[in-house]
Amino acid sequence: MATKAVCVLKGDGPVQGIINFEQKESNGPVKVWGSIKGLTEGLHGFHVHEFGDNTAGCTSAGPHFNPLSRKHGGPKDEERHVGDLGNVTADKDGVADVSIEDSVISLSGDHCIIGRTLVVHEKADDLGKGGNEESTKTGNAGSRLACGVIGIAQ
């Protein structure tokens, strides 16, 4: 089992970053940390998408990683996509320092995120509470600013 993974985020604009993942036990939580720069100040949706395909930019990554066919939600919700990591918060300089621990994603097994795409979005994720159909699919997080395929790390 891989215990570490990394993702280099890039987009068409100024947004870029490096996100690290570490899972010490196969059924334990995954620590997610790193930094994203070039964002507007505020909240930005942060999700693992189904495919590791960036051939047409971030759009070819498909929908959120959702092997259990659930509705979109927040990272602490029972009803959520596996890939729903909530929001990252950018400061006035456009930098989001990421520090998350998640017990639904994994670096092995059915919820493995390796080979899938991590995406940072234009807007805040409403965590499935926006009151419309799009909220239950995407959290109304808007366009995909930057993305990268999650790969095994040393």
Rank of each mutant, 00 (worst) to 15 (best):
V98M: 06
A5L: 00
E79L: 13
N140K: 14
T138E: 03
S103F: 09
E122D: 10
G142E: 07
H81V: 00
D126R: 04
G34E: 03
G13Q: 04
T117G: 06
D12M: 02
E25A: 10
K37H: 15
H111W: 06
G128M: 11
R80I: 04
D125R: 07
S135H: 04
V119C: 12
V149W: 03
L118W: 00
D102A: 08
N20M: 15
P29W: 00
E41Y: 04
K10G: 13
A124Y: 13
V98R: 01
Q16C: 05
V88S: 01
E133Y: 13
D91S: 09
D12F: 11
H44V: 01
R116A: 07
G115C: 10
T55W: 07
V82M: 08
A141L: 09
L145C: 08
S35H: 11
I114M: 06
V15N: 02
T138L: 15
T136F: 15
G11T: 04
S108C: 11
K129E: 06
V119T: 09
D84V: 05
V95F: 12
L43T: 15
L107G: 01
V88I: 15
G131S: 11
I19N: 00
D91Q: 07
S60K: 12
R70T: 09
K71Y: 05
G73K: 03
T89D: 05
T138A: 05
L85G: 01
V120P: 00
N54A: 08
H64M: 15
N87P: 11
N66F: 03
A153I: 09
F65C: 10
V149I: 12
E78L: 13
T40R: 12
N66R: 05
S99Q: 12
T117C: 12
N140P: 05
E78Q: 08
T40H: 13
D53H: 14
G139T: 06
N87S: 08
K71G: 09
I150K: 00
A56T: 13
W33I: 07
G151S: 10
G115I: 01
G151M: 10
T136K: 11
G83S: 11
I19T: 00
G139A: 09
I36E: 03
R80P: 04
K129Q: 14
G148V: 04
D84Y: 05
S26P: 02
D102M: 02
L127T: 12
G34Q: 00
V98E: 02
K129S: 10
H49R: 07
L127K: 12
G115H: 02
K4R: 09
K71N: 15
D110R: 13
I19W: 01
F65L: 11
V88N: 02
P14T: 15
C112F: 07
I113P: 01
A5V: 00
G52D: 05
A124G: 11
G38R: 05
V120C: 10
D126M: 06
T136L: 15
T55G: 10
A146D: 05
R116P: 04
D110S: 13
V149M: 09
C147Q: 15
S103N: 09
G148W: 02
A141C: 15
F21T: 01
L68R: 14
A56E: 11
L39A: 01
K31I: 12
G74N: 14
L39H: 03
Q23A: 05
L107R: 00
A90C: 14
L85V: 00
H44Q: 04
T89L: 15
L9Y: 02
V104Y: 15
I114E: 03
L118K: 01
G73Y: 15
L107A: 01
P29V: 03
H72N: 13
G62E: 14
R80Q: 05
D125V: 09
T117D: 03
V82K: 02
V120A: 01
D53Y: 12
A61E: 12
V6L: 14
F46A: 03
N132P: 08
D102F: 02
I19G: 02
E22I: 13
F21D: 03
D126V: 06
G109H: 01
E78M: 09
V95T: 13
S108Y: 13
V15R: 03
V104F: 08
G148A: 00
D110C: 15
H81G: 05
E25C: 05
G45W: 03
V149S: 05
A146S: 07
N66C: 09
H81E: 05
N132D: 12
I100E: 03
R144L: 13
R80G: 06
V95W: 15
T59M: 06
G139D: 05
K123N: 11
D84H: 06
G142W: 04
I152S: 05
K24P: 07
T55Q: 02
N20K: 11
F65I: 06
L68A: 07
E101F: 15
R116D: 00
A146F: 01
L85N: 01
S135N: 08
K123L: 13
E25P: 04
T3D: 10
R116K: 11
T117E: 12
T89I: 15
D91A: 14
G131L: 14
S60P: 12
I113C: 04
A90D: 08
G142H: 05
K76N: 14
N66D: 13
P67R: 12
I100M: 11
G73D: 08
G130W: 08
N54T: 14
L127D: 14
I113N: 00
G130F: 06
D93C: 08
V8L: 14
V8M: 12
I18Y: 15
D125C: 14
I105G: 02
G11D: 07
V119A: 12
G148C: 05
G151V: 12
G13E: 06
F46C: 07
L68Y: 05
N54K: 09
S35Q: 15
K24D: 08
T40G: 12
R144A: 15
V149D: 02
R144W: 13
D12I: 00
E122A: 13
N54M: 14
V104R: 11
G34F: 00
G62R: 07
F46W: 07
P63K: 02
K76S: 12
H72R: 05
H111K: 15
K10Q: 09
K129M: 09
H121D: 12
G45F: 02
V95L: 12
D77S: 10
T138N: 14
I113Q: 00
R70V: 02
V120F: 08
G34L: 00
G130N: 08
N140Y: 06
E122I: 01
N20R: 09
C7H: 01
F51T: 05
T138P: 15
E79K: 07
G128S: 10
E41K: 15
C7Y: 01
D126Y: 06
G34K: 04
V30A: 01
R116G: 04
C7N: 02
D91G: 15
L118A: 03
D53T: 09
